[in-house]
Design a protein around this nucleic acid. Structure first.
Length: 429
DNA sequence: GGTGTCTGCCCC
DNA sequence: ATTCTGC
DNA sequence: GCAGAATGGGCAGACACC
């Protein structure tokens, strides 16, 4: 009662978990530059330091004590302190890859957890995720790394993938995720053991390798990791032929991999997603995002949206497939629409609103939308994969779903059926 | 002690 | 993760 | 081209409820 309107807005966001400060670590980097020079001129230097010491508090202390130049130049990766991982972008075609990167190294893309391993012989071995969270406890397998590497210390970059106990095949992502836990690790690790597929090394025996090119790092890697344990090198092939890239891509897809990673041979380890150094190619890319198994689903309801989407009146919408007389949910769609398409779908859906859930809808409680709509609008949806779902009433869900198009030419009776979706699911294996 | 629901500087 | 948009 | 901000499924955990 004692707060003014603006204060109420921000105080109310705390209990509902929606408070944002409105600035990120990047803004702090700007501020540190301003502190010294009154402009942003030192930002590139600060960003480079931040990549290997991504803690603005520690960074600020270093700078206060030693000045930006001295502090930043002395910063190299330290085993035990997480480094921001190098990330990949997408490129539409292999020819564009070669155009932008020249000679490249092609690796399979594995569907697991990105892990950076920090190892100091006799002292510790730690694991950090992409977001710099320490997850060492998840991987008791790491304890024996000292037997499988030739070094006194190192930082490795790898993908951790589960191994199915019975089939000895690589587990799917959902199974690998069961290892992301803090209780009963011992028990779970017997059911799902982990292999670490290593593809990079950024520090060895106290030497910083981030500025070495990829092939040099790869060479060091081959001299460092011994065969036989759960630590395996990701296989690779060097090429500058777009045709070869395409062929490898198709081969890896047929072998069950998620796709390929294509890496510029002549490139250091540059954290973040900037530049054309690492590129990914996943299923559907070769068809240029076209009809790589899209489905036509019924829009069942929608939510009001937050932030920018609140102005459109739609944040996300619930979609389902036909199963006899019933309509069962298979996904929510929250991306793939332009601003104009959001306005368009709001105009349509508001006319279809109905107070109560239509009788033919089967929806788990947690998917209850802000507004129900009667079955009328059909939309075309793409996804990377169909998965078994514990929560969607169709029993199947979509991984990375996005809108492709409105299907005004179709009515609900022509929507994809559950049977058809199950057919597509079986086809994946 | 079970079940259901919600959350995560979560993982993808 | 995917996608779109303002810069 | 980049950074930021919308949003997805689904796992283990935490907690509320019965």
């Amino acid at each position: 009662q004692n707060l003014d309107q603006l204060s109420v807005k921000f105080v109310a966001r705390i209990p509902v978990g929606r408070l944002r400060l409105g600035f990120s670590d990047k803004t702090i980097l700007d501020a540190l530059s301003w502190m010294q020079t009154g402009d942003k001129s030192l930002k590139p230097l600060l960003e480079k330091a931040y990549q290997v010491l991504p803690d603005v508090g520690l960074l600020a202390r270093e700078i206060k004590e030693n000045g930006v130049e001295k502090a930043c130049q002395g910063i190299v990766p330290v085993v035990g302190i997480p480094v921001l991982p190098m990330l990949s972008q997408r490129i539409k075609s292999p020819s564009e890859m070669v155009e932008k990167m020249g000679e490249v190294d092609v690796e399979p893309k594995l569907d697991g957890l990105r892990i950076l391993i920090h190892f100091v012989r006799g002292k510790f071995v730690k694991a950090f995720t992409r977001n710099l969270n320490e997850t060492s406890h998840m991987f008791p397998e790491l304890a024996k790394i000292d037997k499988f590497v030739n070094c006194s210390s190192a930082i490795f970059d790898c993908e951790a993938v589960g191994l199915d106990e019975k089939t000895k095949m690589m587990a799917n992502f959902q199974t690998t995720m069961t290892r992301r836990r803090k209780h009963d690790i011992g028990e779970t690790s017997k059911k799902v053991s982990i292999d670490f597929f290593i593809f990079d090394i950024i520090s060895k025996d106290g030497k910083n390798l981030m500025d070495k090119n990829y092939l040099e790092r790869r060479k060091v890697l081959e001299e460092t990791v011994k065969k036989g344990g759960p630590f395996k090198l990701v296989f690779h092939e060097i090429t500058k032929s777009p045709e070869r890239i395409n062929k490898l891509y198709k081969k890896r897809i047929s072998e069950g991999y998620e796709g390929i990673m294509v890496k510029k041979v002549d490139s250091g380890y540059v954290p973040g997603r900037t530049g054309w150094r690492w590129v990914k190619m996943k299923q559907g890319e070769e068809a240029q995002g076209k009809l790589a198994d899209t489905i036509d689903v019924v829009v069942m309801g929608y939510t009001q949206g937050r932030g920018k989407r609140a102005s459109f009146g739609v944040g996300q919408f619930l979609v389902g497939v036909k199963d006899g007389d019933k309509i069962k949910t298979t996904s929510k769609i929250g991306t793939g629409l332009t601003d104009e398409e959001f306005r368009e779908i709001e105009r349509r859906l508001k006319n279809l609103r109905t107070k109560d859930k239509p009788k033919e809808y089967e929806v788990r409680k947690n998917y209850t939308p802000d507004f129900w709509v009667i079955p009328s609008l059909i939309v075309e949806i793409a996804a990377d994969e169909i998965t078994k779902s514990p929560t969607h009433t169709a029993g199947l869900a979509l991984r990375f779903p996005r809108l492709i198009n409105f299907r005004d030419d179709k009515d609900p009776s022509e929507a994809t059926t559950l049977r058809e979706l199950e057919g597509l699911f079986d086809l994946q294996k």
